[in-house]
Structure formats: C-alpha cells, structure tokens
Design a binder for these strands. Structure first.
Lengths: 167, 167
DNA sequence: TATTGTTATACTCTATAACTATA
DNA sequence: TATAGTTATAGAGTATAACAATA
C-alpha cells in the first residue's frame, strides 16, 4: 500500500505520492479540484436535511425577490427548467414554498416563500456556516475576503449576473 | 423574456436577474460555481485534441516521476483504477505512453512516457496557458499569485498531497 | 488469501426534447 | 404560432463490484 515498498525511488526524487508540481502551481487545476470538492461536501451536508444545495439557492432567491415566476428563477440560477420543477415539487411538498397561478397569465405560476420556508433557510445557512468554517479553516478573515474578492471578480467578468450590487 | 415586463418590481429592489447577494457573498458558492465552470471549459478545450484534462494530468505525473505503476498513478491522481485503464489505453493507442510488465512482480505494469508523449505535453500546456489567460483575465500577476496562495493553502489543509514541495 | 490490472454493471446528474395548457 | 410548466428519455461521468492472473 505504501508508494515505494522496495525503496527504488531515484535519489532526490519528488516526495512520495505527491501530485506533480506542475499541477499544484496551476490555479485552474486547484480551482477545479476545490470546486468539485466543495460541491460534493455541500451535497453531503445538505443531504441530512433531505434537501440539496439547489433547494437552498432557490429559497435564498425567493426570499430576496418575491413574485418570481418559475422561468425567471430557473434562468437566474442557471438551472434547467425541468430540473427546477422537481426542486419546487420537493419544497412545496414540505410546505416551504407555494405556487399560485398568475391571474394575468394562467400559464405562469408565481412562486413564493412560506414562513416555514424562511425557517428552513435559517437551518440551511447554519449548515453553510459550519461548512465554510471547515473548508476555509486555514484562512483568516483577511484571507477569506481576499479570496472572495478574486473569485468574485473572475465570476462577474464571465457573467455580469455575478456582479455584487454596490451597497 | 425580460425579467420585469410589466414594471412591477418593488422600488429599490435588487437588480434584475441578479443572483441573490447572499450567494454572491459566499466564497464556497463562488468556488463551487467557478470550479465546475473551469472543469467544463477545460474539457471543452482539450476535446479538440481528442483527449481530456485527465489525459494531461496522467502525462504530467509520468513526466515528473518515472517508473510509475498504474495503482500509484491512480491513487496519486485520485482516479478510479478502472478509469485509469481507459485513459492509459487511449494514451498508449496514440503512442504517448508505454506499458511494460514489471519483471519483479508480473502482476504490475510499469508505465512510462514516450517522446511523443512529451511532445503532446507541450501541446496540452499551451492549451492550459490560453485557458488560464481567458479565465483569469481580470486578475493581474499579483492577484493570481494571491489566489493561488489561498487555494493552495486550502487544498493542502485537507489533503497533504497538495502541499507544494519547497524549492 | 491478497493484490494488480481489467472488464462489466449500475447509479447519479444533467441535458434534450416531447407534451399540455394557455396565450 | 409561441410560451410556461411538466414529464419522459437519453447521455455523460463516475462509482461499484465481479473477474483473471500473479504473488
């Protein structure tokens, strides 16, 4: 199971089982690896609530801007409209959101948060805080702000919807 | 198609179609989003070569530490051993790597880079450089170093194999 | 019996596109 | 005809586990 059982590594060779320095020095490689890792961890954590990160993001969006139609929610979150149906079904089933027909256009549904939905949002936020503490443990507040700043600039450069509204 | 066709948004409401500020201020959310985005872009770019990012990482690993056995390559790269078989099949088929039986343990294969493999590595690196330029465009050199530093510290905190060997 | 490499299988996630009801 | 929501299908990517050869 050890990497060099017969001690035949070349003298001065790279540390056992370490990833290539070429990869470790590549910000894109780290970004990709860490990105999928956080996603996996988040799914894992949310799983115990019976929901997933997408359920949370839907609730978070609904809390900010009310009177959302399904299409706008899906587009904003870059979710497939078909996928969103399933998410809303889950949420509605647990009384966290409500769908109401739009009287002006009976094709549309107007989706809104319920009080239970707001309470669930608090639970989700607590999960995320714990997860952030775990994942960003080696970074102090200044580091986290610096990281967020760079990530935010990258994201908003490729997609204006990621621009943070100035306070 | 527009988000507010009837102009009924509350006064002072959040910008149209913008993601919730709660999400935009969350480093984990951005990390996850950007991470899957880079991965997707990388796959897309590598696709034109007939290979994928994993083929590249295998070649990069083989160039650094020679005489690798398949199990060690898979473990180091955190790849499924079954998946690695397919990757090596592809690479060997194009003459980029060679598999040779280990005489001391005939269950094992010793995998090594061929000259063609080294040349392909140059091509892959060029693709990655372009991709980094595109993806990290809004960041100057200092920003990129700062980003790499934080990502590197996070990664090595959770997995020692991500520690960069001191020069 | 345990391990290396291989192959086959199953499962998850997501993207595509057909379908309905309204407009 | 076009659009909102729904449903069903198919595909990629990945994980699980059975398998043959060797130790």
């Amino acid at each position: 199971m050890t990497a060099d059982p017969d001690g035949m590594n070349p003298v001065g060779g790279s540390p056992v089982d370490c990833l290539p320095a070429e990869l470790l020095a590549n910000p894109l490689f780290l970004l990709g690896r860490l990105g999928v890792a956080v996603k996996a961890r988040a799914i894992e954590e949310f799983d115990r609530t019976g929901f997933g990160p997408y359920h949370y993001s839907v609730l978070a969006l609904l809390e900010e801007g009310a009177r959302e139609t399904q299409a706008s929610v899906a587009d904003t979150l870059e979710l497939d409209r078909g996928t969103l149906v399933g998410l809303l079904d889950d949420l509605e089933e647990h009384g966290l959101v409500e769908r109401a027909r739009d009287r002006n256009d009976r094709r549309r549904y107007v989706v809104g948060l319920t009080p239970a939905g707001r309470r669930q949002l608090v639970v989700f936020r607590a999960i995320l805080e714990r997860l952030e503490e775990e994942f960003l443990a080696p970074l102090d507040e200044a580091d986290r702000a610096a990281l967020l700043d760079r990530l935010s600039r990258i994201a908003s450069h490729h997609d204006p919807r990621f621009s943070r509204p100035r306070l």
